[in-house]
Write a protein that binds this DNA or RNA. Structure first.
Lengths: 236, 236
DNA sequence: TTATAAAATTGGTCAGACCAATATGCAATC
DNA sequence: GATTGCATATTGGTCTGACCAATTTTATAA
């Protein structure tokens, strides 16, 4: 780093430059200066602004890309991912791969998180939340193909995770989705393949919603548990 | 409400070099060519071997470092982390920070995973596993300071996560440890600070071990649940 | 106005250099 | 022989400048 200007960029120990750059991005995201979909400055310009080399900038971009926060398009630019939560836990995928993980591993992991999410959601759900969930279930019912239905199902679970108010649980479950996608083709369409299953799933969804409406955490957990058991059975 | 866009990433195009390099490391780790503690080739040499520029190598190293697989020591070299599981979920820390996460978030997340781990461990625990757990509890009892005791406590929980046989749960819990460390100073010493607590914790640990020995998943889950509730209460 | 091609922009890669922290080897010392 | 201290080599960290490749923007022609 140049000493020409008496800028105090680093305090104490000399931290790696790319980490400093990363932090500035994280900070901007946190306080809303930067938002999903936004474009980062071009590498050359950013480097100039921060008075560092382009190499340092590129290392920061690489790090941000690795944790799923940004995507780079050659010639286009680098952008904050629209839904960066979905890939935030990319290392989970790598871990699963390195450890020869099985489908059961994913199911067991998902199971307890979904149940916990449902319990927490029961404590926090607002009327508006309930309305949205019911709307999703209605759409799910009316869906005329398995794919469309599966999308609403996915939204249903995401919404509950959102309502839970717990960012770790929410993000983990989003990552589970990604992981499942990677392992099974068209995961949810499998679930919706028979009319009988669809009916069963509908009833379970409704039971969960009712529990949330009554702010009955125990009940929500119980019904979500049953729901998960069904899904586990169907995916076998 | 935003539409879900399930992007299917197409292979076949020229992949980024750093990803190729990463993959070779992951592959080497998977088949045992590389092991924790091993040193990666010097950047210059590695670049030459792979017939790429050093920049490309550095981007790969950066990516590996970001997901917690390797650590770099200037002048020393780059090494596979001894226990890379511990930092595999570093993005969790970032997510927690970006979302203004609370201690409750961590507790709720940990709670359901520890319980699930205990249940699964009950199904898989061997006599050897039980022996190790009992040894840990004995050492915990004999520990003459809170710090030493806290280490054994940590090992106790890690061991159960290990016994569960689920890599995702195990790695997630390891990450929770790291996250707690980052937020609270000397987390577990707080827990062990009073003799009365120590006694309570000891009994709970013993109950959990007994459940594992009997391969009683329900019981293991119940006692771990009580254990977690106590911990939550103590950390408040 | 639209379609097409040239130019500018921007990420991807490369080469070579120097700095800073660490590791290594060797000589001096005890 | 073992230890210490220092010069040297090694290795990661950063910088500069260049060229390639994909994309976007602009200018031009129909």
């Amino acid at each position: 780093m140049k000493n020409e200007n008496n800028e105090v960029i680093l305090e104490g120990k000399s931290e790696r430059i790319y980490k400093t750059l990363m932090d500035s991005i994280l900070e901007a995201l946190k306080n809303g200066t930067l938002n999903p979909g936004d474009r980062l400055p071009p590498e050359r310009k950013w480097a100039e602004e921060m008075k560092v080399s382009r190499s340092a900038v590129r290392e920061a971009v690489r790090a941000l890309e690795m944790i799923g926060l940004v995507s780079c398009r050659q010639g286009g630019g680098t952008f904050i991912n629209e839904n960066y939560r979905l890939t935030m836990f990319q290392p989970m995928t790598i871990s699963h791969r390195l450890n020869h993980g099985t489908l059961s591993d994913i199911q067991e992991y998902r199971q307890c998180l979904e149940i916990q999410a449902a319990k927490l959601a029961a404590l926090h759900a607002t009327d508006e939340d309930i309305r949205i969930l019911e709307s999703l279930v209605r759409k799910m019912n009316r869906a005329d193909n398995t794919y469309e239905g599966s999308i609403y199902d996915r939204n249903f679970h995401s919404k509950i995770a959102e309502i839970s108010g717990n960012c770790l649980i929410r993000d983990s479950l989003a990552s589970v989705e990604a992981l499942l996608d990677e392992i099974i083709d068209d995961v949810r369409s499998i679930i919706f393949q028979s009319a009988r299953n669809t009916r069963l799933l509908h009833d379970q969804h409704q039971q969960i919603i009712d529990s949330l409406r009554n702010h009955d955490a125990a009940s929500a957990g119980k019904y979500m548990s049953e729901h998960m058991e069904l899904i586990v059975r169907l995916l076998k």
